[in-house]
């Protein structure tokens, strides 16, 4: 119980930061390169302490992101909850697994979520910018170690 309390503050701060960075005003060109910060943070906490992230929380964060981004309401909610479900379902003790397996899981989940988003937008009639999605995906994959290191600071 005590452990959970100590983690809730870093959890809150990290999500707040991820949202702020996401909605930062920036030039149009850079927006395509914007990594999926919130998803990164979400995956991090799911791997490090699976009990702190529940499906309803992931869902709510997704809806919040949709509201901010102006995307179809429920799009990111669906992606987030599916990603977290897959991560949680595949293994119980992610925090006890070796690093390479965790990185593999991260890349897998990211790839799945980007593909899913692409297919969904195709159906809804959103953008057809396949290449640009890849840009963001590659950058997210590269930013992952950064997120990991930054968020690991809270352990000190």
């Amino acid at each position: 119980m005590h452990r959970r309390q100590s983690i809730s503050l870093p959890l809150f701060i990290s999500f707040l930061l991820a949202f702020v960075v996401t909605i930062l005003p920036m030039p149009e060109v850079l927006r395509w390169w914007q990594p999926a910060w919130v998803l990164c943070v979400l995956i991090y906490w799911t791997l490090v302490s699976p009990d702190s992230i529940s499906l309803p929380l992931a869902w709510c964060l997704g809806v919040l992101l949709d509201v901010f981004l102006g995307t179809l309401l429920g799009l990111h909610a669906l992606i987030f909850s599916l990603s977290i479900f897959l991560l949680k379902r595949s293994r119980h003790g992610w925090h006890r697994q070796p690093t390479w397996l965790r990185s593999l899981a991260v890349v897998g989940v990211l790839m799945g979520s980007y593909l899913f988003q692409y297919v969904l937008t195709l159906f809804i009639g959103g953008s057809h910018q396949g290449v640009s999605y890849t840009l963001s995906f590659v950058l997210t994959a590269f930013c992952w170690p950064l997120v990991y290191l930054l968020l690991n600071l809270h352990k000190r």
Partner: peptide, 14 residues
């Protein structure tokens, strides 16, 4: 159960 509910809710919202 949670994933079924959240998928349904998201699709409904969309």
């Amino acid at each position: 159960f949670g994933i079924v509910v959240s998928v349904l809710l998201s699709v409904g919202l969309m």
